[in-house]
Nucleic acid binder design. Structure first.
Lengths: 212, 212, 212, 212
DNA sequence: AATGAATGAGCATTCATTCAT
DNA sequence: GATGAATGAATGCTCATTCAT
């Protein structure tokens, strides 16, 4: 009995998230509304409030979901690649870019948009975001242990790499990149720059002297 | 007298743009409304239509304005630096990052936000966006002529650099980067990666043999 | 209990229709607004959308309602008259005129006003309009079978009669007819002309030889 | 000097009316606005108020204009036909119908619409409307003198005829007539009925006894 | 657990009109 | 005679949310 009930409950919660995600991809975030979600799953709008206390909370759940999805994708990419660290990093980075380009509106919800209300992304959810960066960090550590990457602050560099990839994804998604350019070449260029930075031995030399 | 009159008119246009930019960044594009703009400058909503025929047009004017401002900043950075191409590129990139971080409102309007209407960014405005990238392109050409940069498709690389810098700026502005990290180091890392990619001769080899 | 609930709901729908019909005739279609309707019945404008998905739909519901009312009136007139076809037609026509003059609001909505939007009157509603004309058609057929009416295309003639009656009603309702004239005489004249046309054997001869 | 000035003035007034008429036909009455009129003639909206104190007044001027136009058309039809009264009446009626069908929006302004404000059509303008009915009256008189029309109250019958024609025109214009029907046949039918009523000797017999 | 009824606030946009110049 | 600047009121419609049931 209880099990059935809770299953049904989870069912609806899942249905809502599925519908929300779907509508967001179809119509864009800003035209996502509680009413539309409700309609698309055949429930009343009121019912959504039994599972999410506000649109913001639903929004955060969507981010959560996305972070999990991204994580599992990055993880498989990392474990699937049995070669050296450079190859692994390449695989992870491509996997990230691929996630963004294949899940455009998802990506926007996770990394670009913020709810209209002033409410901030709940601090405790950052862990899920961090998880993803850790996949990069781990690969960098691997490369450092291998002796192929020259990098002192691994976590900082992981964030740097993430940021650079984000730039590419965000602009491509927003169609702000000259259409004449080949998307794949742009991505390849970015990955090349990342790798060069990691393998360059001149690292930190010119940079530490930056302010002198 | 006449001068004053026309000044007053321009004044209102400017006031509108200022208010719009501010509100857009504060509340997000979708929460920006003609009424709010009007209220915040003490005019009626109708008056805005005396200067902008629609919300979209107002939005595009905002972008335009920002593009001009950015261009003049990049140009000064480029011309101010009389050293080699690497230094010049460093100056230009830093100038770009600096623009973003010091003009968060402008930056978001220009590169992050986008209307959800189907309306496309007017083609003739692309030129303004492109001229900023050209500042980077020119510097890359300089480096290639000097023999210090190894880059085949200059325009593609300029876009790549722009995208990577954009990622850093966007995440910093949105406060999506772990606060424990030092902002300057993140930027320095990025610039290092960019430079490494330009000076590395192993271009494309390990990453993808497609173009070899 | 349940009955009461559903009654309340229907109540609101009816209230809306009543208010809308009244306002439309008072102020004209283009000056009819959802807000005005709402205000006049003490509900919020939003509530109207619980019953009608758009202003157009509300408008069409109004027409529908009127068509039904008119039909039941014409039908009774037709069945009540047991005499010959001429008498029956007279009764039906008078019933039509009477409907218009006694239900000015209904009549204008049904036959005079029209939305300025490009939206077309839904095809499936034509049936309701048509059934009213069929009451006339049937009477004409009766007269033809009796041998008292000379009419080749019954449906065409029914429409013609309807149109002529409409002219009289519309102008009387709009008070565009010289007030010095006796309304009853005007109607009597019209009916006389109609009857003469039906009983005259000189059909079409003098007017147009096109079809002879 | 003075002459020139007043010519210029009349010019603008005429331009306004022309533009208003044109826009009304193009976009429909309810989307006619002072601003649009002004724009289409290259003047400021304010300027219209130098010639018409309100939209209503402009509206009435339009009716006036239409009445004149209709009158001149009916008059030519009447004088052009040198035959008997029946032919003449036929010509006049057809001319009226033709006016309505060829000047749809014009016709609506003149005979169907009324301004949104409660303001009534100024009484002194009725004379222009009456003029048109007189053309019909005159023809009826002619027929009576000829001995071909049997009609006691000429003015009443003129109004009756006008009303019947109006019904046909109004419904055709509003596209409320079954499209399957031939427009010309409908009109012919109407004219036949009118003529039959005039030539029928049984006139008034059955009608006067109506109430007995 | 689920909902139907209801609403206040908000949206972009258009309008007729005024007024100082 | 003509206008630019400005506005208050209005429009249809959508939204997130509440509440009694």
């Amino acid at each position: 009995m209880i099990a059935t009930d809770s299953l049904n409950t989870d069912d609806l919660r899942t249905k809502i998230l599925d519908a929300a995600r779907h509508l967001m991809v179809t119509d864009g975030y800003s035209s996502l509304s509680m009413r539309k979600i409700a309609k698309s799953i055949g429930y009343s709008a009121t019912s959504i409030y039994l599972h999410f206390s506000s649109k913001d909370e639903l929004f955060y759940a969507l981010i959560d979901e996305g972070m999990d999805k991204l994580y599992s994708q990055l993880e498989s990419a990392a474990t699937a690649c049995k070669e050296n660290a450079a190859q692994k990093l390449d695989a992870v980075c491509r996997s990230f870019v691929d996630f963004g380009l294949s899940n455009r509106e998802y990506y926007e919800v996770m990394f670009v948009l913020h709810p209209d209300t002033g409410s901030r992304y709940p601090a405790d959810k950052y862990r899920k975001a961090r998880q993803n960066i850790d996949v990069i960090s781990d690969t960098l550590k691997l490369g450092r242990d291998e002796g192929s990457f020259f990098v002192s602050d691994v976590y900082l560099m992981a964030n740097t790499i993430w940021a650079m990839l984000h730039g590419v994804i965000a602009l491509l998604i927003a169609q702000r990149i000259d259409r004449g350019l080949d998307q794949q070449s742009l991505i390849r260029n970015t990955l090349h720059n990342i790798e060069s930075g990691l393998t360059s031995t001149r690292r930190f030399v010119s940079l530490d002297s930056e302010n002198d």
